[in-house]
Protein backbone atom coordinates (compact mmCIF):
# COMPACT_ATOMS: atom_id res chain seq x y z
CA UNK A 1 0.00 0.00 0.00
CA UNK A 2 1.41 3.45 -0.84
CA UNK A 3 2.23 5.62 2.15
CA UNK A 4 -0.34 8.30 2.99
CA UNK A 5 2.32 10.59 4.45
CA UNK A 6 5.93 10.70 3.36
CA UNK A 7 8.42 12.94 5.10
CA UNK A 8 11.65 13.09 3.16
CA UNK A 9 14.83 14.46 4.72
CA UNK A 10 12.95 17.41 6.21
CA UNK A 11 15.06 20.26 7.56
CA UNK A 12 13.51 23.33 9.19
CA UNK A 13 15.24 26.27 10.80
CA UNK A 14 14.36 29.38 12.76
CA UNK A 15 15.96 32.71 11.94
CA UNK A 16 16.21 34.82 15.07
CA UNK A 17 16.06 38.60 15.02
CA UNK A 18 19.80 38.71 15.40
CA UNK A 19 20.17 36.63 12.26
CA UNK A 20 21.09 33.47 14.14
CA UNK A 21 20.02 30.21 12.52
CA UNK A 22 18.61 27.46 14.72
CA UNK A 23 18.29 24.13 12.94
CA UNK A 24 15.33 22.77 14.89
CA UNK A 25 14.52 19.85 12.57
CA UNK A 26 17.55 18.33 10.91
CA UNK A 27 16.94 15.60 8.40
CA UNK A 28 13.77 13.80 9.49
CA UNK A 29 12.38 11.07 7.24
CA UNK A 30 9.55 8.63 7.85
CA UNK A 31 6.46 7.22 6.22
CA UNK A 32 2.99 6.73 7.57
CA UNK A 33 0.78 3.97 6.16
CA UNK A 34 -3.00 4.21 5.98
CA UNK A 35 -4.46 2.99 9.25
CA UNK A 36 -1.19 3.33 11.11
CA UNK A 37 -0.45 5.18 14.36
CA UNK A 38 3.11 6.44 14.61
CA UNK A 39 4.35 7.66 17.97
CA UNK A 40 6.97 10.38 18.22
CA UNK A 41 8.72 10.64 21.58
CA UNK A 42 11.33 12.96 22.99
CA UNK A 43 11.92 15.50 25.72
CA UNK A 44 10.98 19.14 25.30
CA UNK A 45 13.19 20.99 22.87
CA UNK A 46 13.82 17.94 20.69
CA UNK A 47 12.03 19.49 17.72
CA UNK A 48 8.64 17.73 18.03
CA UNK A 49 6.61 20.90 17.89
CA UNK A 50 8.58 22.37 14.99
CA UNK A 51 8.15 19.12 13.12
CA UNK A 52 4.38 19.48 13.52
CA UNK A 53 4.44 22.92 11.89
CA UNK A 54 6.36 21.37 8.99
CA UNK A 55 3.93 18.46 8.64
CA UNK A 56 1.03 20.91 8.50
CA UNK A 57 2.75 22.93 5.78
CA UNK A 58 2.34 26.01 7.90
CA UNK A 59 5.72 27.68 7.75
CA UNK A 60 5.58 31.25 8.99
CA UNK A 61 8.51 33.45 9.93
CA UNK A 62 10.66 33.00 11.92
CA UNK A 63 10.31 29.32 10.88
CA UNK A 64 11.71 28.49 7.43
CA UNK A 65 12.10 25.43 5.26
CA UNK A 66 15.74 24.52 4.69
CA UNK A 67 15.16 21.49 2.46
CA UNK A 68 13.19 18.30 2.10
CA UNK A 69 9.56 17.46 1.37
CA UNK A 70 6.31 16.50 3.05
CA UNK A 71 4.02 14.54 0.73
CA UNK A 72 0.43 13.71 1.53
CA UNK A 73 -0.95 11.15 -0.91
CA UNK A 74 1.83 12.09 -3.28
CA UNK A 75 1.28 15.88 -3.14
CA UNK A 76 4.18 17.99 -1.85
CA UNK A 77 2.36 20.36 0.50
CA UNK A 78 5.40 22.49 1.29
CA UNK A 79 5.44 23.72 -2.28
CA UNK A 80 1.75 24.54 -2.63
CA UNK A 81 0.54 28.16 -2.52
CA UNK A 82 -0.51 29.09 1.05
CA UNK A 83 -4.13 29.68 0.02
CA UNK A 84 -4.31 26.17 -1.39
CA UNK A 85 -2.78 24.72 1.79
CA UNK A 86 -5.38 26.51 3.86
CA UNK A 87 -8.34 25.43 1.76
CA UNK A 88 -7.55 21.88 0.77
CA UNK A 89 -4.80 20.57 3.07
CA UNK A 90 -5.46 21.90 6.57
CA UNK A 91 -8.31 20.18 8.32
CA UNK A 92 -8.95 17.86 5.35
CA UNK A 93 -5.73 16.08 4.49
CA UNK A 94 -4.14 16.71 7.83
CA UNK A 95 -5.54 18.09 11.08
CA UNK A 96 -4.00 18.77 14.41
CA UNK A 97 -5.19 18.12 17.94
CA UNK A 98 -3.21 20.65 19.92
CA UNK A 99 -1.57 20.32 23.28
CA UNK A 100 -3.29 23.05 25.25
CA UNK A 101 -6.93 22.39 24.55
CA UNK A 102 -7.72 24.75 27.41
CA UNK A 103 -6.57 27.72 25.36
CA UNK A 104 -7.19 26.46 21.85
CA UNK A 105 -10.80 27.56 21.64
CA UNK A 106 -11.69 31.18 21.04
CA UNK A 107 -13.01 32.22 24.47
CA UNK A 108 -15.67 34.58 23.13
CA UNK A 109 -17.16 32.28 20.51
CA UNK A 110 -19.71 29.58 21.14
CA UNK A 111 -18.53 26.10 20.23
CA UNK A 112 -21.24 26.01 17.57
CA UNK A 113 -20.02 29.16 15.84
CA UNK A 114 -16.39 28.11 15.96
CA UNK A 115 -17.18 24.72 14.44
CA UNK A 116 -19.30 26.42 11.78
CA UNK A 117 -16.37 28.70 10.93
CA UNK A 118 -14.21 25.65 10.35
CA UNK A 119 -16.70 24.05 7.96
CA UNK A 120 -17.40 27.28 6.08
CA UNK A 121 -13.68 27.87 5.64
CA UNK A 122 -13.51 24.79 3.44
CA UNK A 123 -16.95 24.77 1.91
CA UNK A 124 -18.09 28.32 1.33
CA UNK A 125 -21.50 27.51 -0.04
CA UNK A 126 -22.43 24.99 2.64
CA UNK A 127 -26.07 25.10 3.71
CA UNK A 128 -26.37 26.47 7.24
CA UNK A 129 -29.03 24.03 8.27
CA UNK A 130 -27.03 21.08 6.94
CA UNK A 131 -24.01 22.27 8.90
CA UNK A 132 -26.01 22.37 12.14
CA UNK A 133 -27.29 18.87 11.50
CA UNK A 134 -23.76 17.67 10.84
CA UNK A 135 -22.44 19.26 14.04
CA UNK A 136 -25.16 17.67 16.12
CA UNK A 137 -24.56 14.28 14.59
CA UNK A 138 -20.79 14.42 15.03
CA UNK A 139 -20.81 15.77 18.59
CA UNK A 140 -23.33 13.16 19.63
CA UNK A 141 -21.19 10.48 18.05
CA UNK A 142 -18.14 11.45 20.09
CA UNK A 143 -20.18 11.13 23.26
CA UNK A 144 -21.08 14.74 23.95
CA UNK A 145 -24.46 16.19 24.77
CA UNK A 146 -24.54 17.97 21.45
CA UNK A 147 -27.09 20.72 22.09
CA UNK A 148 -25.73 21.80 25.44
CA UNK A 149 -22.10 21.68 24.37
CA UNK A 150 -22.62 23.44 21.05
CA UNK A 151 -24.38 26.32 22.77
CA UNK A 152 -21.71 26.69 25.43
CA UNK A 153 -18.75 29.01 25.56
CA UNK A 154 -15.40 27.30 26.22
CA UNK A 155 -15.21 28.78 29.72
CA UNK A 156 -18.33 26.86 30.68
CA UNK A 157 -16.83 23.43 29.97
CA UNK A 158 -14.52 21.36 32.20
CA UNK A 159 -11.02 20.55 30.93
CA UNK A 160 -11.70 16.97 29.90
CA UNK A 161 -14.79 17.97 27.91
CA UNK A 162 -12.95 20.85 26.27
CA UNK A 163 -10.34 18.42 25.00
CA UNK A 164 -13.17 16.27 23.60
CA UNK A 165 -14.64 19.30 21.86
CA UNK A 166 -11.27 20.13 20.32
CA UNK A 167 -10.97 16.57 19.05
CA UNK A 168 -14.48 16.88 17.61
CA UNK A 169 -13.64 20.11 15.80
CA UNK A 170 -10.28 18.84 14.56
CA UNK A 171 -11.88 15.80 12.97
CA UNK A 172 -15.01 17.51 11.63
CA UNK A 173 -13.83 17.28 8.04
CA UNK A 174 -12.77 13.63 8.33
CA UNK A 175 -9.07 14.33 7.89
CA UNK A 176 -6.91 11.53 6.53
CA UNK A 177 -4.12 12.22 9.00
CA UNK A 178 -4.41 13.50 12.54
CA UNK A 179 -1.43 14.89 14.39
CA UNK A 180 -2.06 14.61 18.10
CA UNK A 181 0.41 16.82 19.94
CA UNK A 182 0.39 15.77 23.60
CA UNK A 183 -3.42 15.69 23.54
CA UNK A 184 -3.68 14.26 27.02
CA UNK A 185 -0.66 15.46 28.96
CA UNK A 186 -2.51 18.30 30.68
CA UNK A 187 -5.28 15.98 31.88
CA UNK A 188 -5.55 13.66 34.85
CA UNK A 189 -5.07 9.96 34.23
CA UNK A 190 -8.78 9.23 33.93
CA UNK A 191 -9.48 11.94 31.39
CA UNK A 192 -6.33 10.89 29.56
CA UNK A 193 -7.65 7.40 29.17
CA UNK A 194 -10.98 8.68 27.90
CA UNK A 195 -9.25 10.86 25.31
CA UNK A 196 -7.19 7.97 23.97
CA UNK A 197 -10.29 5.79 23.82
CA UNK A 198 -12.03 8.50 21.80
CA UNK A 199 -9.14 8.74 19.34
CA UNK A 200 -9.27 4.98 18.85
CA UNK A 201 -13.00 5.13 18.18
CA UNK A 202 -12.46 7.79 15.53
CA UNK A 203 -9.92 5.53 13.82
CA UNK A 204 -12.11 2.46 14.11
CA UNK A 205 -15.10 4.24 12.66
CA UNK A 206 -13.04 5.39 9.73
CA UNK A 207 -13.48 9.07 10.47
CA UNK A 208 -9.72 9.36 10.65
CA UNK A 209 -7.38 7.17 8.68
CA UNK A 210 -3.95 7.54 10.27
CA UNK A 211 -2.40 9.30 13.21
CA UNK A 212 0.89 10.73 14.42
CA UNK A 213 0.91 10.81 18.22
CA UNK A 214 3.46 13.07 19.87
CA UNK A 215 4.28 12.73 23.55
CA UNK A 216 7.07 12.73 26.08
CA UNK A 217 5.52 9.79 27.89
CA UNK A 218 6.84 6.58 26.39
CA UNK A 219 4.63 4.25 28.46
CA UNK A 220 1.58 5.85 26.90
CA UNK A 221 2.86 5.07 23.39
CA UNK A 222 3.03 1.41 24.33
CA UNK A 223 -0.77 1.35 24.11
CA UNK A 224 -1.26 3.87 21.36
CA UNK A 225 1.31 3.46 18.63
CA UNK A 226 2.25 0.66 16.26
CA UNK A 227 5.63 2.18 15.53
CA UNK A 228 7.66 4.73 17.50
CA UNK A 229 10.22 7.29 16.42
CA UNK A 230 12.43 8.71 19.18
CA UNK A 231 13.66 12.23 18.51
CA UNK A 232 16.69 13.95 19.95
CA UNK A 233 18.15 17.34 19.01
CA UNK A 234 16.12 17.67 15.80
CA UNK A 235 16.79 14.16 14.52
CA UNK A 236 15.22 10.74 14.73
CA UNK A 237 17.62 8.60 16.72
CA UNK A 238 15.65 5.36 16.65
CA UNK A 239 12.58 4.22 14.75
CA UNK A 240 11.01 0.80 14.96
CA UNK A 241 7.99 -1.12 16.17
CA UNK A 242 6.60 -0.30 19.59
CA UNK A 243 7.87 -3.59 21.04
CA UNK A 244 11.35 -2.95 19.70
CA UNK A 245 11.63 0.60 20.98
CA UNK A 246 9.98 0.20 24.38
CA UNK A 247 11.28 -3.18 25.50
CA UNK A 248 14.45 -3.50 23.46
CA UNK A 249 15.74 -0.02 22.57
CA UNK A 250 19.15 -0.14 20.93
CA UNK A 251 20.03 3.54 20.86
CA UNK A 252 21.46 4.71 24.23
CA UNK A 253 19.11 7.71 24.32
CA UNK A 254 16.06 5.50 23.83
CA UNK A 255 17.21 3.31 26.70
CA UNK A 256 17.95 6.32 28.90
CA UNK A 257 14.53 7.78 28.12
CA UNK A 258 12.79 4.53 28.97
CA UNK A 259 14.92 4.16 32.11
CA UNK A 260 13.96 7.64 33.29
CA UNK A 261 10.22 6.93 33.19
CA UNK A 262 8.60 6.37 36.53
CA UNK A 263 6.97 3.09 35.98
CA UNK A 264 3.75 4.36 37.36
CA UNK A 265 2.49 1.09 38.64
CA UNK A 266 2.43 -0.75 41.90
CA UNK A 267 4.97 -3.46 42.49
CA UNK A 268 7.66 -1.68 40.53
CA UNK A 269 9.15 0.25 43.43
CA UNK A 270 12.34 -1.78 43.24
CA UNK A 271 13.21 -0.54 39.74
CA UNK A 272 14.60 2.91 40.30
CA UNK A 273 14.12 5.38 37.47
CA UNK A 274 17.23 7.36 36.51
CA UNK A 275 16.84 10.91 35.26
CA UNK A 276 18.94 11.87 32.24
CA UNK A 277 21.43 14.42 33.45
CA UNK A 278 22.31 17.58 31.57
CA UNK A 279 20.38 19.29 28.79
CA UNK A 280 20.03 18.73 25.02
CA UNK A 281 22.57 20.60 22.87
CA UNK A 282 22.01 24.14 21.69
CA UNK A 283 20.85 23.86 18.08
CA UNK A 284 21.91 27.41 17.35
CA UNK A 285 25.54 26.23 17.28
CA UNK A 286 26.99 23.85 14.68
CA UNK A 287 27.30 20.36 16.16
CA UNK A 288 29.61 17.66 14.98
CA UNK A 289 29.74 14.09 16.10
CA UNK A 290 27.06 12.28 18.08
CA UNK A 291 24.64 14.78 19.58
CA UNK A 292 23.94 12.67 22.62
CA UNK A 293 27.60 11.85 23.38
CA UNK A 294 28.01 14.34 26.26
CA UNK A 295 25.04 12.86 28.15
CA UNK A 296 25.43 9.28 27.01
CA UNK A 297 26.15 6.77 29.81
CA UNK A 298 27.94 4.42 27.40
CA UNK A 299 29.79 6.98 25.25
CA UNK A 300 33.05 5.85 23.69
CA UNK A 301 36.06 8.08 22.94
CA UNK A 302 35.22 8.23 19.23
CA UNK A 303 31.57 9.29 19.69
CA UNK A 304 32.06 13.09 19.85
CA UNK A 305 33.99 12.97 16.57
CA UNK A 306 31.79 10.74 14.53
CA UNK A 307 28.65 12.06 12.79
CA UNK A 308 25.89 9.55 13.23
CA UNK A 309 23.62 8.21 10.52
CA UNK A 310 20.52 6.06 10.78
CA UNK A 311 21.40 2.46 10.06
CA UNK A 312 19.54 -0.80 10.41
CA UNK A 313 20.12 -2.71 13.63
CA UNK A 314 18.08 -5.74 14.65
CA UNK A 315 15.18 -4.92 12.36
CA UNK A 316 14.83 -1.20 13.19
CA UNK A 317 16.80 1.96 12.41
CA UNK A 318 19.20 3.43 14.94
CA UNK A 319 21.44 6.50 14.91
CA UNK A 320 24.46 5.15 16.82
CA UNK A 321 27.45 3.45 15.30
CA UNK A 322 28.06 1.42 18.45
CA UNK A 323 24.55 0.00 18.63
CA UNK A 324 24.16 -3.65 17.82
Amino acid sequence: MPAILEVEDLRLHYLTRLGKRVQAVDGVSFQLQPGEILGIAGESGCGKTTLVSGLMGLLMPPLHLSSGAVRIAGRDILRLPPAEVRRSVLGRDIAMIPQGALNSLNPTRKIRDLATDVILAHDEGADRRAIQERLRERFTRIGLEADAVLNAYPVQLPAGMKQRVVIGISTLLNPRIVIADEPSSALDVSSQKAVIQLLFNLLDEGIVSSMVFITHELPLLRHVAGRIAVMYAGQIVEIGTTEQVIFDGRQPYTRALMGSMLSAEPGQKSRKPVAIEGAPPNLGEPISGCRFAVRCPVAQPDCPQRDQVLREVAGRHVRCHHAH
Binding site: S190, N201, L203, D204, E217, P219
Partner: peptide, 29 residues
Protein backbone atom coordinates in the same frame (compact mmCIF):
# COMPACT_ATOMS: atom_id res chain seq x y z
CA UNK B 1 -4.23 0.77 48.79
CA UNK B 2 -2.86 -0.40 45.47
CA UNK B 3 -2.98 -4.13 46.02
CA UNK B 4 -6.15 -4.42 48.06
CA UNK B 5 -8.18 -1.35 47.16
CA UNK B 6 -11.50 -1.18 48.99
CA UNK B 7 -12.99 1.74 47.11
CA UNK B 8 -14.17 1.52 43.50
CA UNK B 9 -12.68 4.98 42.94
CA UNK B 10 -9.24 3.70 43.92
CA UNK B 11 -9.64 0.80 41.52
CA UNK B 12 -10.61 3.24 38.81
CA UNK B 13 -7.49 5.35 39.40
CA UNK B 14 -5.33 2.23 39.24
CA UNK B 15 -6.94 1.03 36.04
CA UNK B 16 -6.44 4.38 34.32
CA UNK B 17 -2.64 4.31 34.55
CA UNK B 18 -1.06 3.48 31.19
CA UNK B 19 1.15 0.65 32.37
CA UNK B 20 3.68 -0.87 29.99
CA UNK B 21 2.89 -4.33 31.23
CA UNK B 22 -0.86 -4.74 31.02
CA UNK B 23 -3.66 -3.87 28.61
CA UNK B 24 -5.11 -0.39 28.95
CA UNK B 25 -7.49 0.78 26.25
CA UNK B 26 -8.76 -1.48 23.53
CA UNK B 27 -9.27 -0.91 19.84
CA UNK B 28 -12.19 -2.71 18.36
CA UNK B 29 -10.84 -2.73 14.86
Amino acid sequence: VTQRPTSPFTRQLLDDIPSVHRPWVSRVG
